Amino acid sequence: MSGLTDTESGPGVPRGKVAADVISPSARGKASTLLRHKWNVQVGKAVPLPPAELAGAGDYRVSIRGCRVHDALFANIRYDSTMFDGTWVDAQYFSDLVVMDVVRRGTWHFTRARGRDKVAVSAGQFIVRYNNPSWRFAVQSHTTQKLILPVAPLGPLIRKRPVLGPVDSAEMRLLLAHVHTVDTELNELSPAGLQSARNTLVELVMGVLRQKVDGAEPQLAPSLVQAAKDVVNSHLAHADLSPSMLARELNVSVRTLHRAFAATNESVSTYIRDQRLEQARLALTRFIDRPSVSELAAHLQFADSSHFIRAFKKHYGQTPVQYARFHGHRAAP
């Protein structure tokens, strides 16, 4: 199969959303032309098309799913191929822009200045670069989150050398939480909300470049809350999960963390408890390998089984055994 599949702005594609695919090199010229046309329809020429004209032989697929917020764009880009050969592809599409890549799978290899500057960015790392002069990258099967921003507000912080770091740094956690929130709620944002989302995006990228974010800034509170929730959801079985641990992970004070949650009418400790109970509820619906009450209590760091049972019944109106007996049988088929 070869060609391009996509959905234009309108029914099926919410405001500001971007969706396009390129499949197989056999129709490379035509597919590239179609992709560029659809990109201009969905995004506009102000934000250039990410490179998708692959030089390697064999079948490939490029999938782009993204979101435009004024003059900024973030997208998930997936390159898949049966015969990628590591051919270098020019990235002049991003001339005079700030580009961030968050590598999720594989390794990106960047070079410029006739090979004098070489950078390898593996999964779990990010790179921020000012694309002037432009960088080239080696095409291989990989997945990346790409963020493209105007250079004006970020230029003073971008030097000739790119900025690299781990994805799980406090600053990146806040940035990625904001990106996730905007992507989820984009179609509900007012024009003022869109502008605020764009400004917050730039502010958080500046924090990444400075390696410091002002967590007390009220505008960043929603991103701080989402980042904290992301940490909670991946540490539910950890004994040290607490507001203090979250504050350390996100490089803010405990007071700042509590204040951010309060702005959304939530409590940090309540969120931790409710997510642990929710994980227990889901485990109790398993028909096979269902854990015991004592195992769940220990795994989710409740003081003991009695404490877990009381908390579960207060939250769901049934004891864990009652819930498992009713809902587990219903889920059996």
Rank of each mutant, 00 (worst) to 15 (best):
T87A: 15
P162H: 06
P291G: 13
M245W: 14
S26M: 13
G16I: 07
P191R: 10
Y60C: 09
G16T: 04
P14V: 04
N40M: 05
F302K: 12
A120P: 00
S141M: 07
V151R: 09
D183G: 04
V182S: 01
Q92H: 08
Q125V: 00
G12S: 08
D240S: 10
G3Q: 06
A55F: 10
T181R: 02
S190W: 03
G106D: 06
T144H: 02
H329R: 05
E278S: 09
V103Q: 01
F110R: 00
A324D: 08
V254Q: 15
L241H: 07
A262G: 03
V252A: 06
F308D: 08
G207F: 13
L164H: 01
S26F: 11
D6Q: 07
L174I: 03
R198D: 05
L220E: 05
S26G: 14
D85W: 05
S190F: 08
V179Q: 02
H329D: 13
F94S: 02
V254R: 14
D240F: 09
I288K: 11
A52W: 03
A46H: 07
G328S: 05
L186S: 04
P218K: 03
H109A: 07
W135I: 03
A52F: 07
H299I: 13
N131Q: 13
V208C: 01
N233L: 15
V208M: 00
D230S: 12
E185W: 07
H327C: 12
N76H: 13
R290N: 10
V268W: 08
P166H: 01
V128G: 00
P51F: 04
S2H: 14
E217L: 12
F94V: 04
A31D: 13
V151F: 08
D168A: 04
V121W: 04
L34M: 08
V252W: 14
Q211I: 08
S134F: 11
V128H: 00
R273M: 14
V13A: 07
M100N: 01
L300S: 08
S24L: 15
N233D: 15
K212D: 15
L220Q: 07
R255Y: 11
K17Y: 13
S234E: 15
Q145I: 01
R276H: 09
A152Y: 10
S134G: 07
R159G: 15
V232A: 08
F84C: 08
G328R: 09
F84P: 04
L34R: 10
K314N: 12
R255C: 11
L147K: 00
G86T: 03
N251T: 14
E171S: 12
Q301L: 10
H329Y: 08
